[in-house]
């Protein structure tokens, strides 16, 4: 009850006032990305911002599953890894064009999500979490042990750079724009889904699965569909990551990465597209900024997460909106 009360104030915004606000938000987003891309010359900063974009893709996909459909996945880094390794092996070992490899990576992740989701999404709550956790671990072990193909725990070297015609993405700036272009596309895609019949049904699962079923939503199928969609976004992120750093190892797709993805979604604010962006930015930037704390980094990191969860249990997006609303009300 308390939850719904808190949420209600802003819920209408997501869909109803779609047009004008959306266009404004999109315009701000595009301008900000363009300004960052043009103004920032420092390769380190560009690199960080590119990582933020990749993480935003991950958080966006997981947010559709967690924030809207209300299903927790603790193994989502597996899809990220499947995307990265598929493109690495196909383009690196077999010399396939990376763009063709991208199609295979997405198709592969979606297929795996289908096979895994079919039984696991029948589980709920903690059991679903445990099921996906196990899946994530299995995939990670495959990356580590199938060394003839994946390079094992020492990693996979020799992923080619992306090219499109005469345009090379070797240049950090081009890659930055590529990643953020994809992020923008993904945001538009998510919003389209959310404001549709499918999106409404998804959100109804989150509010009450029993009622959702009783009004005729095939909840199992819908959860499976959105699981596959979030796997696809994860694979795209993995593809972009692999061709960006050009070296991948199993650690980048392990359990801790899955947890980090969940944290991004929760911190940023569930059921909010912009929350995914905020959460991803924060969780990418924090570790960079906390380098100064050396070995205390994890403590500070954990402390910040705890504080956010205690004082803004709805996530940063909603928390900040609440503070803004509070401040506005004051005379």
């Amino acid at each position: 009850m308390k939850d719904t009360e808190n949420v209600t104030g802003y819920s209408g915004n997501i869909v109803i006032i779609s047009n004008r606000r959306d266009i404004a938000a999109n315009a701000i987003f595009v301008t900000a990305v363009l300004m960052c891309g043009i103004a920032v010359q420092n390769t380190y900063y560009l690199q960080i911002m590119t990582f933020i974009g990749i993480n935003t893709l991950l958080a966006l996909g997981l947010n559709m599953l967690m924030g809207y459909a209300g299903q927790v996945s603790l193994g989502h880094a597996a899809f990220y890894g499947i995307g990265a390794y598929t493109t690495a092996v196909l383009s690196g070992t077999f010399g396939v064009s990376p763009w063709a490899a991208l199609v295979c990576a997405v198709a592969g992740a979606v297929l795996v999500a289908f096979v895994v989701g079919l039984p696991t999404l029948r589980l709920s709550g903690y059991y679903l979490g445990m099921g996906t956790l196990g899946f994530g671990m299995i995939v990670n072990i495959i990356f580590r042990e199938w060394s003839s193909v994946t390079g094992g725990s020492s990693g996979f070297v020799g992923i080619p750079m992306l090219e499109a015609g005469s345009l090379s993405f070797m240049d950090g700036k081009n890659y930055f724009f590529l990643v953020w272009g994809v992020v923008f596309g993904a945001i538009l895609l998510c919003r389209r889904i959310l404001s549709s019949r499918m999106g409404r049904a998804l959100r109804s699962i989150h509010d009450g699965e029993k009622a959702s079923m009783a009004v005729g939503v095939n909840t199992h199928f819908l959860k499976l569909q959105i699981f596959m969609f979030s796997a696809a976004l994860g694979a795209v992120a993995g593809f972009l990551y692999a061709h960006f750093v050009m070296f991948i190892s199993p650690e980048s797709f392990g359990f801790m990465v899955s947890v980090k993805m969940v944290t991004m979604v929760v911190i940023g604010g569930m059921a909010s597209v912009w929350g995914a962006l905020l959460g991803a930015s924060l969780l990418t930037l924090l570790p960079e900024m906390l380098h100064g704390f050396a070995e205390y980094e994890m403590i500070v990191f954990g402390l910040i997460l705890m504080l956010v969860m205690i004082f803004m249990p709805q996530g940063l997006t909603r928390g900040l909106l609440d503070i803004y609303g509070h401040w506005k009300k004051r005379p």
């Binding site: 109804s204 509010d207 009450g208």
Partner: peptide, 11 residues
């Protein structure tokens, strides 16, 4: 068992 965070229209 309404969908509490959604508007009446959306319900």
């Amino acid at each position: 068992e309404l969908f509490g965070s959604m508007t009446l229209l959306e319900n």
